[in-house]
């Protein structure tokens, strides 16, 4: 059943659980993918998704249709994930389990190229990974990234350059 975006929005404004679930089902995978790429921990990505959707349902009546619903939700997910990350990195007592994959040689044998590329992206240092994901995958401008991460445009550009260099190095084995 293909329900229009407008019907979904109206149903969610009326707080009808059926429409909330439909909206969640429609966007959860795309939003969770963004959250996983932006967060340090997988659990944080889950929490960020949960908090972001609660925020979406709470404020959906404020959606002014200046962008698509997906873009509006994505904005909330990105902000929530980044906020979650900030909090997470402040927790010094908790052991951080980085999503790094160091054994690249073995991975080439087992994974497809896209999965390998994904793992390389996830293995980038946190800050440069966030900037790479936002700029290259999600299409954010450096000005938007600077505002989101509270850094200068110059830092955003240099971090992106650094991320690309690292990625190039990591991808060298399969590019050869």
């Amino acid at each position: 059943m293909d329900i229009s975006e407008e019907t979904l929005i109206q149903g969610c404004i009326k707080q009808e659980r059926r429409f909330q679930k439909l909206l969640y089902d429609r966007y959860c995978a795309a939003m969770f993918t963004i959250a996983v790429r932006l967060c340090v921990h997988y659990e944080d990505a889950e929490d960020a998704l949960q908090e972001a959707f609660l925020e979406v349902f709470k404020h959906i009546h404020e959606f002014r249709k200046e962008s698509t619903l997906g873009a509006w939700i994505k904005k909330i997910v990105v902000r929530t994930a980044l906020k979650k990350n900030k909090k997470s990195s402040q927790r010094q007592d908790i052991q951080i389990l980085p999503l790094t994959f160091c054994d690249f040689d073995n991975l080439i044998e087992k994974q497809t190229d896209m999965e390998y590329l994904e793992k390389c992206i996830l293995s980038l240092p946190q800050k440069s990974r966030q900037i790479f994901v936002l700029a290259e995958i999600e299409g954010y401008s450096h000005e938007e990234i600077a505002e989101l991460l509270q850094i200068s445009v110059g830092t955003s550009k240099s971090q992106l350059h650094y991320a690309k260099q690292l990625l190039k190095q990591k991808l060298e084995p399969i590019l050869k």
Partner: peptide
């Protein structure tokens, strides 16, 4: 790139 699916417990 691969897409991640959240576990059911999130919903």
């Amino acid at each position: 790139l691969p897409v991640y699916h959240p576990p059911d417990r999130v919903w």
